[in-house]
């Protein structure tokens, strides 16, 4: 467990020292999301109708944008070899890296999400299902993304490959994340979509770190 904490602490410290990276992702989230009123018109009713889906799509893309650096720098500077050669279980190290990645990308996105949602005229009463959905859904995005990042490690144009690998896998999270907000907007209970997101998270937690670890071993050869 101390290895988990050590790696988590190192990755958090590295992100804080290179603070620009994390801020850039949040800035992308807000700026790209704020383009939609210009594209579809500033009609509040239209915007409010599409806002849940937009916030979720922007969150997916922002997470995706930050994924390529998850293992890349460790791969390039030789740290990944050392992590692979450590007697610590590799799944534990992968889990630590995913946790650090989630803390520095998804948590700022959740803080920024109300801003973007209100820019898109989402009813403030719908923020709880949106944020609860993000709380349950973004860890799944980070875990699935880690599998893709490990698989595309060392590939030419890995970033594009990563998007192609990961985005289809993000569809269920998008459907149920936006679905929870849509259900709440229609005055229906939104527990069921949130529970589906929770189920995805449990499945991803159980399988994701192992899959990513296996891909990393492959990438190091």
């Amino acid at each position: 467990m101390s290895a988990f904490a050590a790696l988590l602490r190192r990755d958090l410290r590295l992100t804080l020292r290179n603070g620009g990276d994390a801020l850039m992702v949040v800035a992308f989230f807000i700026v790209a999301g704020a383009l939609f009123p210009f594209g579809v018109g500033a009609e509040p009713a239209v915007l409010a109708r599409i806002a849940p889906g937009l916030v979720w799509v922007m969150a997916l893309l922002s997470v995706l944008l930050s994924l390529d650096r998850l293992f890349q720098s460790d791969y390039e500077d030789g740290s990944l070899d050392q992590i692979l050669l450590s007697p610590q279980p590799l799944t534990l190290a992968v889990a630590a890296k995913i946790a650090a990645h989630w803390l520095v990308t998804a948590v700022p996105l959740m803080i920024a999400a109300p801003v973007l949602a209100l820019l898109l005229s989402l009813d403030p009463a719908l923020l709880p299902p949106l944020l609860l959905g993000m709380l349950l859904g973004t860890p799944t995005l980070a875990i699935l993304g880690a599998i893709g990042a490990a698989l595309s490690l060392g590939a030419r144009r890995g970033g594009v490959l990563l998007s192609l690998l990961v985005l289809p896998l993000y569809i269920p999270v998008l459907v149920f994340g936006a679905g929870a907000v849509a259900a709440a907007a229609a005055g229906e209970p939104f527990q069921a979509p949130l529970m589906a997101l929770g189920a995805f998270l449990l499945a991803a937690l159980a399988l994701g770190p192992w899959a990513a670890a296996a891909s990393l071993r492959q990438a190091a050869q």
């Binding site: 101390s2 190192r10 410290r13 590295l14 020292r17 720098s73 500077d77 030789g78 050392q82 610590q88």
Partner: peptide, 23 residues
């Protein structure tokens, strides 16, 4: 190996302390 496995943003001590704690 050839690569030094150092993080440019961390101090020498932080780099080594990490490997000590991790490994």
């Amino acid at each position: 190996g050839h690569a030094d496995a150092l993080k440019a943003a961390l101090t020498v001590r932080e780099n080594l302390s990490f490997w000590s704690a991790f490994d």
